[in-house]
Design a protein around this nucleic acid. Structure first.
Length: 175
DNA sequence: CACCTAACGTAATCATTCT
DNA sequence: AGAATGATTACGTTAGGTG
């Protein structure tokens, strides 16, 4: 019920990615990794992806789903060791959670994405893959781009309405 | 059909880049 | 410092496969 738009009129692109079924061996490795760390960083996810021969985005989804269903019992949050020894400057500053490097889009890539977005803000897997191929970026990045774009458009709209009602209150002074 | 779970959506937030 | 925007998370929903 949270998502309503794609079922309204532009329903033509209904393709989801075909459901991947992990083999027992793959699952074993995933479960094992999860028990060791339910919040793998990017490099860890990448390594797992190679190890079980799947895409990193599948690993990410799997961990998301797993955390949601099995409520592990961990509070990693801001893992900061209490050793504030600034006298050890040659330590690896890798404490910060390792994330995927922020991808930066060229203006032509952005133009393509924006065009596609106005055409259909909810592209199915086929469209996303086609777009990804076209601009030379992984499909998972295209998916994230569309998610962020939709979110920010919604926020913008909401704010627009709020400002409109604000203006109504400030009106009626001059005029 | 019921159950499990991959795929995918939103909302909030973290983090990086740029002005 | 703050605006833009990519990445990650929690949580909820949708849909495919199986007993």
């Amino acid at each position: 019920m949270a998502q309503d738009s794609p079922s309204d009129k532009t329903m033509v692109t209904k393709c989801r990615r075909s459901r991947t079924s992990f083999t027992e061996d793959q699952l074993k490795i995933l479960v094992q990794a999860f028990s060791q760390n339910p919040y793998p960083g990017y490099t860890a996810k990448q390594r797992l992806a190679v190890e079980i021969n799947t895409e990193e985005s599948r690993i990410q989804i799997w961990f998301q789903n797993r955390r949601a269903r099995h409520g592990f019992l961990e509070r990693p949050k801001k893992n900061l060791d209490s050793s504030k020894d600034h006298t050890s400057p040659k330590e690896k500053i890798q404490d910060g959670r390792d994330r995927r490097c922020r991808t930066s889009y060229s203006s032509s890539q952005l133009q393509t994405l924006k065009n596609a977005f106005t055409e259909n803000p909810y592209p199915g897997i086929d469209s996303r893959e086609q777009l990804a191929e076209e601009i030379g970026v992984p499909e998972s990045r295209v998916q994230i781009w569309f998610q962020n774009r939709r979110s920010r458009l919604r926020i913008q709209r909401k704010r627009g309405l709020e400002e409109a009602s604000d203006q109504r209150q400030n009106q009626g002074q001059d005029l």
